[in-house]
Nucleic acid binder design. Structure first.
Lengths: 122, 122, 122, 122
DNA sequence: GTGGTCTAGACCACA
DNA sequence: GTGGTCTAGACCACA
């Protein structure tokens, strides 16, 4: 389910947290379903348990999972996470558009470009 | 011209390179104009010259400046830089929109949102 | 009567003990009334009986319930519990006010703030 | 400056972070002043550097300090931290008062009690 | 020197 | 079994 990319410059724990974040947002991991245990995942990925622990800690801080000590880590309420994430992404797009405008991008060009993106077709 | 934000988590050299990048794209630093010398800027910012050197190396790698040995660092051709940067930014926006779509964003909503951004008014 | 919040970070036994504490202080559970048996409650909540047992032990240590072997767990004298708890809470408020004072809170501001709280209206 | 209390049940990193939080809020550590380096403090307290690292990480996440890689950890803007903390504390007091009210506390009693606290005299 | 990441391995509380 | 904390020690990027 999780594959580590050793060419990725980011730290392992961030990579792992990010993978889970996407699996949760895409709905592959359903709400309240259990994530693999720290030790199991560490074994699977041939990685130190501390690193997994850290990834899970981040996910909890960001609200993607909740922890029941002695039981495991579980996926939080998805719909609210999706809304939150959508806002965050639109905010980032706003920042990028401001930069793009400074490079000469005009409103119509932006709208035409986005209108034509292939991603909408899928 | 350059102000360092110590609360910025990024390494200093990256921050400095980024500041110059923006000054160049905005046209504050004109084409073929000379950047401050490594030593002078290091003095001004009370920073290790190595850090400035690394920032300039970055800028050269990214094509924003060109070096003439013994004479200094100079701003590259701006128009092509702007076009390049614009493409890069739109590409990043594309990636973000793919993620946002997975979180439930629809085409019309994206267009309406971008249409309404205040940045276009300025 | 008891609902478990798995998103609560505290251990289950503490959560359960706390819920009962509130039910007793609010008077929902009357003095000398019997609490559900360890086994029954464990079944109801789909939880390990050991966890319930630990919660009840806590409640007994804190004086909220008394145990009659072979008969069950019963609510202690409420009025004295309420007085005890009130003192405890005011003591905690004292500690928090000391900290708030170090952050610049003045006596008048504290009184005005507390005076204006909506909780008194109910 | 920092003393560890091994009788304290809380984890070491939390204890250490909390001590620094108070030193910062009280103004003992002034804005932009440098905290001891991870390694030095670890030596001083005879504690593993990882534990200090973790304490500092928390402080950064909570906004109490900012990090410059290769330089050290520094105290954030105090006044805003104090305001934030004051709000947080008053919010906690609100919660405690709600509980106290359920135990029979009346508005006048609360105000009289707080009015009379010795902490205001200092 | 300074912080950041990671491994290896131990011990604890909770369920 | 499951997560949480901690030690010991290594290696890296940045300044």
């Amino acid at each position: 389910m999780i594959v580590i990319d050793y060419k990725d410059a980011r730290p392992l724990y961030e990579q792992i947290a990010d993978k889970f974040k996407h699996l949760i947002l895409k709905g592959v991991l359903e709400q309240d379903s259990k994530l693999p245990s720290v030790r199991n995942l560490a074994m699977d990925l041939s990685i130190n348990p501390n690193t997994i622990q850290r990834a899970y800690e981040r996910l909890e801080q960001m609200g993607y999972i909740y922890v029941i000590k002695g039981r495991g880590n579980f996926v939080s309420h998805q719909e609210s996470l999706r809304e939150e994430q959508k806002k965050e992404l639109l905010c980032q797009i706003n920042s990028l558009l401001i930069e793009a405008k400074e490079c000469g991008l005009r409103k119509e060009d932006a709208l035409t470009y986005i209108e034509a993106l292939s991603l909408w077709k899928e």
